[in-house]
């Protein structure tokens, strides 16, 4: 039976007192959780066991100008550590992700708080810039 590669991250969430749910299928292992009301996800693909993605998705304001959001995303992509920002124009969403290559997700566990902080701070900065 295949080992549950995301178990160490589920344990990290448990340790931090965060409630999480699993949504695995034949392609991927997934954890969904919230922290301070914001939704996050963790994904690992079965055909790429070294790849782990931690992220959060947000709706963009309806009146937002895509070019301006793109410029802000690009500026933050160049400046921020770890986090990648992508705009999904058709869905009108913005996705903040940290993508990692690891032998085992256990390697992520000691840095999990920092990764969440990076995601949180980047989203905060993105929307603050957007409001200016």
């Amino acid at each position: 039976m295949e080992a549950d590669r995301l178990a160490p991250l589920e344990a990290a969430l448990e340790e931090e007192g965060l409630l999480a749910t699993r949504d695995d299928d034949e392609n991927a292992l997934r954890i969904a959780f919230k922290s301070e009301g914001d939704r996050y996800f963790i994904v690992s693909y079965r055909d790429d066991p070294n790849f782990v993605m931690i992220g959060s998705g947000w709706s963009l304001p309806a009146e937002m100008q895509p070019d301006r959001a793109m410029r802000i995303a690009n500026m933050l992509n160049a400046r921020k550590k770890f986090v990648k920002i992508a705009l999904w124009e058709q869905e009108n969403d913005v996705l903040f992700t940290v993508e990692l290559c690891v032998l085992t997700p256990e390697e992520i566990r000691p840095h999990f708080g920092r990764i969440l902080d990076a995601l949180r701070d980047t989203a905060l900065e993105f929307f603050s810039e957007l409001r200016v």
Binding site: G17, L18, L19, S35, G37
Partner: peptide, 17 residues
């Protein structure tokens, strides 16, 4: 229900045990 219980449910709903 008491305020404490409603607040506890709110915090849990925000993702925290």
């Amino acid at each position: 229900s008491p305020v404490r219980e409603r607040l506890a449910r709110f915090i849990q709903g925000e993702g925290h045990r």
